[in-house]
C-alpha cells in the first residue's frame, strides 16, 4: 500500500474540516488532520484546545499532549478552559473530533466504562468529549473498527450522539449538533435523517461484507458506497512532514 491506515484516516478526517471553520482539535490523529487541512484545502481554519489554547498556525513540532510547550509558543491566544468551552457552548465552534472506546448505531460514544468478561472495565472518562459532542455544530468520531467497539447500543453514553434516533437531541435539551461521521480503521460511516449510521465508504482492500460483519448491528450500506479516497500527495506530504517517525500514523 502506498500509504498507511493511519495516513488514510488522517486524510479522511482532514477533509471533514471546511475552509474557515473553528475546530475543537483534540490529540493524536485529529491533531494531524487539523495540520493537514491547514496546509491543503482549509488554510484559514482555527484550532481550539481544551486547555485554553487557540491556534491559527499549528505547532512547529510534533506534540504528544495539547499542553506540550510547542503548542503554546506563538499560539493565537492562551486562554483558559472556561473561555474555550464558553465559545463552544455559545455555538461558536463548527466541528469537534472525538475518540472513544465504543460508538453505537446512533453515534453515541462511550469512554467511561465498558462491560468486560470479569465485570466493569473502567476507562479514563469524558475529558471534554461530552461537552464537544453536546455543543459543537457537528462532531466526527474516530475508532478502531472491531465488532465489540461498535455495539448496537453503548453501555454508557459519555458523549451524546443521536441518542435513540432522530429528534433525541432536541428532546433532551441539547442546543444543536450531533455526529456527522465516524472514521474507523475499516470505513467511513455517516448518518441518515433518522439519526442512524450507514456505511458511506470502505477503505482500500476492505470489503463491504467485512465492514458489516465487524459492526455490532445490521449496518445499512449506501447505494453509492465506494472506496474511501486515498490520501493525496499533498496530504501525505503534510502528514509525513509532521509525524516524521510515524508515532501516530505508522
Amino acid at each position: 500500500m502506498r500509504y498507511t491506515l493511519g495516513e488514510l484516516m488522517v486524510a479522511a478526517a482532514a477533509r471533514e474540516i471546511r475552509e474557515g471553520e473553528v475546530v475543537f482539535v483534540g490529540m493524536r490523529l485529529p491533531l494531524i488532520a487539523f495540520i493537514v487541512a491547514k496546509q491543503t484545502h482549509a488554510p484559514n481554519c482555527v484550532g481550539l484546545f481544551e486547555n485554553g489554547v487557540i491556534r491559527t498556525k499549528p505547532a512547529a513540532e510534533l506534540i504528544y499532549t495539547m499542553a506540550d510547550p510547542p503548542n503554546l509558543l506563538h499560539a493565537t491566544q492562551c486562554l483558559d478552559m472556561m473561555g474555550v468551552m464558553g465559545l463552544l457552548q455559545a455555538g461558536r465552534v463548527d466541528l469537534g473530533f472525538l475518540g472513544a472506546a465504543e460508538v453505537d448505531r446512533f453515534g453515541n460514544l462511550n469512554s467511561t466504562q465498558v462491560q468486560g468478561e470479569h465485570g466493569i472495565v473502567r476507562l479514563p472518562g469524558s475529558g471534554g468529549a461530552c461537552d464537544i459532542a453536546s455543543l459543537a455544530h457537528r462532531f466526527v468520531a474516530m475508532i478502531d473498527h472491531e465488532r465489540h467497539r461498535l455495539p448496537e447500543r453503548v453501555g454508557y453514553i459519555t458523549s451524546p450522539g443521536n441518542g435513540n434516533g432522530a429528534g433525541y437531541r432536541k428532546r433532551v435539551g441539547l442546543p444543536r449538533g450531533g455526529p456527522s461521521a465516524v472514521i474507523t480503521t475499516k470505513a467511513v460511516l455517516r448518518f441518515g435523517e433518522d439519526g442512524e449510521a450507514y456505511l458511506h465508504s470502505h477503505h482500500e482492500r476492505i470489503s463491504v461484507e467485512e465492514v458489516v460483519a465487524s459492526t455490532g448491528w445490521k449496518l445499512r450500506v449506501a447505494n453509492d458506497a465506494g472506496e474511501t479516497a486515498p490520501p493525496s500527495p499533498d496530504e501525505r506530504r503534510a502528514i509525513r512532514e509532521y509525524d516524521k517517525d510515524g508515532f501516530w500514523t505508522s
Binding site: 468551552m85 457552548q89 467511561t112 469524558s126 461530552c130 461537552d131 459532542a133 453536546s134 455543543l135 454508557y156 453514553i157 459519555t158 458523549s159 451524546p160 441518542g163 433525541y168 437531541r169 428532546r171 433532551v172 435539551g173 441539547l174 442546543p175
Partner: peptide
C-alpha cells in the same frame, strides 16, 4: 447552569 451533557449518562 449549562447546556452541556444533556442526554448523556454523566
Amino acid at each position: 447552569p449549562t447546556r452541556t451533557a444533556r442526554g448523556s449518562d454523566v
